[in-house]
Design a protein around this nucleic acid. Structure first.
Lengths: 273, 273
DNA sequence: CGTAGGGTTGACAGCTTTCAAGAAGTGTGG
DNA sequence: CCACACTTCTTGAAAGCTGTCAACCCTACG
């Protein structure tokens, strides 16, 4: 069977199985934390010999079953988590029970940072599939940062990246057009998958239409319609949760123009007959 | 003249004048950085005293004129900034020239954090009024964090707070109704002003309708209409950029219910005859 | 085999955007 | 001091788009 056509779920499973094996093989010395955050080509634990404390910290690797919350909004934020395998959604549950999806989180991303502000998680995290996370006690963070500069840099960069992504998310939702919003979502998602080393053209969405709709602030029917529209335009090929970006440039052009330009800039209109 | 009725612009000016004086009086020892980030009742140990000695921490206090960018999107991120007085907007300028307002930033907030990810600012910052910021070189951050634990904690909390706020922003924009979105914006803004020590009921918006609209993803006419609607409902009192929250509880009830609850939760509808 | 859940598509009502014009406040120059 | 231009804010009316409701297809699962 062609790997391009086989169900991607199987590939994902194999992927986290590999990731799991690698994590176990590391034996989890604290000096490898930078690697867990995505440090490329990092090795030689204890190379900074003068750091003392040769005993590796017993930070636990936690398994989270599908549809299971890793932590709930408002809970005491005792740990932050580095995703090793699998995917999560972060949610904000309204007082009326409505669940708003803030973001989708994948490998090497950090969960629970927003809890470091006042000691309580500002959002909850739910696994979209069977996942593994690496738990770091919040009280150890200052120590880790000061003792391993590499970790400090990685840790700071991870939070900064989250901030930048949050900005992109706001930008994403600032569009009125449902199709443009969906197109932007696909582009951002594809870029994140590319950063994680996945294919740039094909991507498998781990979340349902309902979650996407919640994330984008749309009705799930509108998301479905938008996918169909983008497919009819020849920009995408949609097969349930498998997306293929057919014309990347055209997709960018379509998604990037905001709308009725308030001032300056020529007017363009994407009218498809 | 009653401070509640006098033009707030004068109050704001007096405010930053006080802030400026305070900052200059501190003489900027690095150990006071935590205070700059909002540490309450912090006194600098071993500060050098006289204003004439240029020895301690030559971190500059920068003045930014109204409508002037502090830094541009994509520029090399050599410093992060702590706002001492005034207000900023952070913007994401699209390739088509459209300026999307990501956030409004006020005193004790940090600007430029998103540039720590890859060394380039992910968003630009423009002063809404004459403002002063304290510039911290990015290369000094690890040193500062490891040397002054109090600064490390404050710094981490500041970034975490930004993340939590980013989540709230996403939540804000997940609503369809323009009036609900505007109501949520007012609530969040009021809370931030309250955290900064301002009045909870009265607030003066430093930004124009166009900026609010860009931030909320609406047309500026819709923002104007929403304000009028909320005023007609008896929730707000709107006089140009001066907002008074008349019925805080009702405003919360109106803003917090998401909309047509997708599943579970009873259906409510805010129909105003 | 039948049910349940997710995804897609259609039709209508409602809301928002857009276009257009007027009102109010501000700054400049005579 | 006034007039003028300029910007911002507000309001009105029509067109377009999205949410809602409803139906149907498909797959997974018991």
């Amino acid at each position: 069977m062609n790997p391009m056509t086989m169900p991607l779920a199987a590939g994902a499973q194999a992927e986290w199985r590999r990731a799991q094996a690698r994590v176990h093989g590391l034996d989890l010395p604290p000096s490898a934390l930078a690697h867990l955050l995505g440090e490329p080509a990092f090795h030689a634990p204890g190379s900074q010999g003068a750091t003392g404390s040769p005993t590796p910290a017993p930070y636990p690797l936690v398994r989270v079953a599908e549809e299971t919350p890793l932590f709930l909004e408002g809970a005491p934020a005792r740990s932050i988590y580095v995703v090793q395998a699998g995917n999560f959604k972060t949610v904000l549950t309204g007082e009326d029970g409505y669940e708003h999806v803030l973001d989708f989180v994948t490998r090497h991303d950090v969960l629970g940072c927003d809890g470091l502000a006042d000691g309580h998680y500002a959002s909850g995290a739910v696994a979209l599939e069977e996942s593994w996370v690496f738990a770091l006690p919040a009280v150890d963070l200052p120590h880790l940062g000061s003792q391993w500069p590499q970790f400090h840099a990685r840790w700071q960069a991870a939070m900064a990246r989250q901030l930048a992504r949050a900005g992109e998310k706001t930008w994403l939702m600032a569009t009125v057009g449902a199709e443009k919003r969906t197109a932007r979502f696909i582009l951002l998602h594809a870029r994140r998958m590319a950063e994680a080393g996945q294919s740039t053209r094909r991507l498998h969405l781990r979340m349902g239409r309902r979650d996407i709709a919640s994330h984008l602030g749309l009705a799930h029917e509108s998301v479905s319609r938008s996918f169909s529209m983008l497919a009819d335009m020849g920009l995408l090929r949609v097969d349930n949760r498998d997306i293929e970006i057919v014309d990347s440039e055209a997709l960018h052009n379509f998604a990037l123009c905001t709308r009725g330009y308030p001032e300056a800039a020529p007017r363009r209109r994407a009218s498809a007959p």
